[in-house]
Amino acid sequence: MFSLLQIELFKISRRPRTYIAFAAITAIVLIFQFAFKADGESYMNLMLQNVQDSFDLDKSKAINGYFMCYIILNTLLVQVPILVSLIAGDAISGEANMGTLRLMLTKPYNRSQLLFVKFLAAFLFTIFLLVWIAILSLFVSLLIFGADDMLIFRVKGDESQILQISKDDVLWRYFAAFGYAAVALTVIATLGILLSVFAENSIGPIVATVCIVLFFTIVSNINVPIIDKHVKPWLFTTYMVGWKGFFYIGIDNEGQPIKGSLENWPAIRNSLVILIAHIATFLGIAFYSFQKKDILS
């Protein structure tokens, strides 16, 4: 099994497509950092709106490494599913397309073993991608912009809020958020693998995965009460932004943030459970179908 995984990772590592993902992320993050270094104040003004009428604030302090990482993740974690599906959607279908699937399947392994290894490889790819994102968007941002308290601009129901998290209370939230993002992206990876079981070229499942994610994300953001109430809870993309929950700091009766606390841990936990249930369901269907499938490619 381990050698199978090594082989899968070797194959992924030798494909130019793999590095497209890393290059895309590097480019996006660097552009963000450059833009905010050059003119982060405009963004701050947009987010602060009329708060500046009542308060003075050192905006250059507010645009720090922690804040940058949040802004970058906010955008990037919408795009990363595309990159994950690029690898996951290709897992089985790509082999079918190349004609290597039939070769693999005549080797002395169970199909479920092979599929599991494919899943593991896609999962590890996702993790590598996230680690790379973390290095660039968090650690490089900290190097460029320094560390300070973090401001979160948030819309909660009908309310808008600005949360301030102390500098020494941020890092663990990022580790938790990246952990959560890993689970969320694994849902995409398993969806990609599931779709790739049914296809004989890699374009189909990749495009299908991306379309599903885009479609769900757009529906999630329509912001009409009837959809918020009856549709949103059924879309897994709703839960993919749950990593932000780690930055919604708990507030005491006086309106002060409580260091080290979370506003709504049960909501994050439930979202995690829902995401993991998606992973299990997608994988289950994928395993069942792959086991039964006649390999005609």
Partner: peptide
């Protein structure tokens, strides 16, 4: 089986080594 297409982005040696490992 039919045309073996193998991994186009790998060399002959790498392909052979890979399938040997799979066996």
């Amino acid at each position: 089986i039919e045309k073996p297409d193998l991994y186009k982005y790998l060399s002959a040696y790498e392909n052979l080594n890979l399938f040997a490992k799979m066996s």
